[in-house]
Amino acid sequence: MQGVFRDAAGQRCAGLVTLPMAGLGSRATFVRDQNAAAEQLAVLPTDRTKARRAAALAVEECARQRREPSCGGVLRLTGDVPVGLGMGSSTSDVIAAIRAVAGSYGLSLGPATVARLAVRAELACDPLMLDDRPVLFAQREGRVLEVLGPALPDLVIVGCALGGGAPVDTLSLPVRVHDDHDVRAYERLRTLLRRAVATGDAVLLGEVATASAWRGQQILCHPEFETLAEISRRVGATGVQMAHSGAVAGLIFDPAAPGLEHRVRTCVRALDSNGIPATRIFTTFPTSKELRNGPAHRGVDRPAGPRTSRRPTRLPSL
């Protein structure tokens, strides 16, 4: 879910709720050079400019806490999060960079500090620095507007890529001005999502995600979105989720509903027949040992989080 909401003081605030997916991420190492000036900070690969800014800000913060002069160094990044698709690749790099710099100083920065530095580095960030609880997060301010509950309902997601998987230049997208009617609509979705999390209601959560996705299409305008929504209805998914900015999407399934495997297989075939490539199947709950270690695990990601599934789930390979 993404939109404009009211904060505790009643002020409008852009916010989002992220769908977590385990299995992908960024790793960073930072080697300080105390003989180099602060501006002599190199990053590899060289195009990770947001991560470089984050590292420079983290050096300034850590040096201040250690009461040492700032210095330069070398930041190295590796990772497997696709770039430009709305999967949080830049935030992943930025947070890895901040934590690597802090580690080089022997420090562990708290989530609030990491969020503050991440927003300064990339203007808006995902709440990847927080724990696994679903939160309504002010991505441009780096603060939590509401903790929605202990965990998302159990979900199975069939991920896919719209637009042929081409990256989306989010900075070129038009900025929509939200009025009071929009804010009231998003606050209603917030109330429903809070209820879905509290009751573990995968159907209600799917309805919220779909409603938010439809509103987001006013800016993103993916030509395949109506087809995706129709496939969702046809195969018995609870709804559709869209990247906050980008081309990745997912169809949401309730693992407790009958015929899960058939529904998922039918979904993958329907996506393929409409020229929408399915990417991966993942869950918001730990899968059974057989699923993790057996042949069905191909293309299936284990989720983060401590929850156990309501029953062992078999998913088709992809």
Results as ranks from 00 to 15, higher is better:
S89M: 03
R67E: 15
G200K: 09
S172T: 14
D132E: 14
V74K: 04
M129V: 07
D180Q: 14
V175C: 10
L193I: 03
L117R: 02
G206Y: 04
L145Y: 09
D80W: 00
A100M: 04
Q139D: 12
D131N: 12
L171S: 15
L173R: 06
L136V: 11
G206D: 08
E122H: 03
G103K: 04
P153T: 05
L171E: 15
P134R: 06
M87Q: 09
L204W: 01
H178A: 15
R99F: 00
V175P: 02
P69T: 13
V81K: 00
R188E: 14
G106H: 01
D169E: 14
R64K: 13
E187V: 09
A124H: 09
V74Y: 00
L123M: 07
I95M: 00
A138K: 03
S70A: 15
G72K: 02
Y186V: 06
D80L: 00
V183D: 10
T78F: 00
R67T: 12
L136F: 05
V144A: 07
A166Y: 01
L171Q: 15
V114D: 02
D93K: 02
G88A: 04
V156K: 03
L85K: 05
P82F: 01
S212W: 04
T91E: 00
D93S: 07
P167T: 13
G142W: 02
G84W: 00
T210I: 09
L189K: 02
R188N: 12
V94T: 14
S108R: 07
Y105C: 12
A121C: 08
A115W: 00
D201H: 03
A96C: 01
V83G: 01
P82S: 05
V197P: 05
D80F: 00
G165F: 03
H181T: 15
L204E: 15
Y105W: 06
P69Q: 09
R99D: 07
R184W: 01
I98C: 02
T170F: 02
V119C: 09
V144R: 01
P153E: 05
S89W: 00
P150L: 06
Q65M: 13
R120E: 15
Q139A: 08
E146R: 13
R66K: 15
V81P: 03
G165S: 09
F137Q: 08
V147S: 07
A124C: 08
V175T: 13
D179I: 09
H178F: 14
F137N: 10
C125G: 03
P174K: 03
V168P: 07
G103H: 02
T170I: 05
L152G: 04
A100Y: 01
S104N: 11
Y186F: 15
A96S: 12
L162F: 08
D126L: 09
E122A: 10
D131A: 06
R140I: 06
R143T: 15
L205N: 06
L136Q: 08
S70I: 05
M129Q: 11
R190L: 14
S108C: 09
G149M: 08
C71M: 08
P167C: 11
A166K: 13
A198N: 03
S108V: 13
G88P: 06
T199N: 08
A115S: 15
P167N: 11
L107N: 09
R194H: 11
A96K: 00
D132Q: 11
E146G: 11
A151C: 10
E187N: 10
G72E: 04
P82Q: 05
L75E: 04
R67F: 02
A118Y: 02
